[in-house]
Computed example of a mutant assay.
Amino acid sequence: VYLTEISIYDKPYQGKIATPYLQKLDLSYKENYLRFKFVGLNYLTPYKTHYLYKLEGLDHDWQRADSRTNFALYHNLSGGHYTFKVKATSDDGSILSRIREVEVYIAPPFWETLWFRLLVAVLIALIGYGYYRIKVNAMRRRQQQLEQTVAERTEELRSRNEMLHEERKKLQQKALQTTLLYEASKQISSQLELNHLLAEVVDLTQKTFRFHNVMIFMYEGGALRLKAIAGAMTKEFKKGFAIPLGKGLIGLAGEKLEEQVSNNVDEDPRYYKAFEEETRAELAVPIKMGNELIAVLDLQSDRYNAFGEDDIKIMKTFSSQIATAINNARLYLQAQQELKMRKKTEAELRQSNVDLEKAKRATDDILENVD
Rank of each mutant, 00 (worst) to 15 (best):
A230E: 05
G231R: 12
A232W: 04
T234W: 02
E236D: 13
K238P: 04
K239N: 09
K239A: 11
K239R: 14
K239M: 13
A242H: 10
A242T: 15
P244I: 12
L245C: 12
L245G: 11
L245N: 10
L245M: 12
G246M: 10
G246I: 14
G246V: 04
K247R: 14
K247V: 14
K247W: 00
I250Q: 02
A253F: 09
G254A: 07
G254N: 09
E255P: 05
K256C: 01
L257A: 12
L257Y: 06
E258V: 10
E259D: 11
E259V: 12
Q260I: 12
Q260F: 11
V261D: 05
S262Y: 08
S262A: 13
N263E: 01
N263W: 04
V265W: 03
V265R: 08
V265C: 05
D266K: 15
P269R: 11
Y271S: 14
Y271A: 11
Y272E: 10
Y272I: 10
A274D: 02
F275M: 09
F275Q: 12
E276D: 14
E277N: 14
T279W: 10
T279H: 01
R280Y: 07
A281R: 03
E282P: 03
A284Q: 01
A284D: 08
P286K: 07
K288I: 00
K288N: 09
M289H: 12
M289L: 12
G290H: 09
G290T: 14
N291K: 15
E292W: 05
E292Q: 15
L293A: 09
A295Q: 04
V296P: 07
D298M: 09
D298N: 15
L299D: 05
Q300G: 09
Q300M: 14
Q300N: 09
S301I: 07
R303E: 06
R303I: 07
R303P: 03
Y304A: 10
Y304G: 01
N305I: 06
A306Y: 04
A306T: 10
A306C: 10
F307A: 06
G308W: 08
G308T: 13
E309C: 01
D310I: 14
D311K: 14
D311W: 01
I312S: 02
I312D: 00
K313Y: 02
I314Y: 04
I314M: 08
M315Y: 03
K316F: 00
K316P: 00
K316S: 06
T317H: 00
F318G: 02
S319T: 10
S320C: 03
A323E: 02
A323T: 07
A323S: 05
T324F: 06
A325W: 04
A325V: 06
N327Q: 09
N328H: 03
R330Q: 08
R330A: 02
L333E: 11
Q334I: 07
A335D: 07
Q336S: 02
Q336D: 00
K340W: 02
M341C: 04
M341N: 13
M341W: 01
R342G: 03
K343L: 11
A347F: 07
A347R: 11
A347I: 02
E348Y: 13
L349W: 04
R350W: 01
N353W: 08
N353S: 10
N353V: 14
V354N: 02
D355P: 05
L356Y: 08
L356Q: 11
L356W: 06
K358S: 11
A359M: 03
K360E: 00
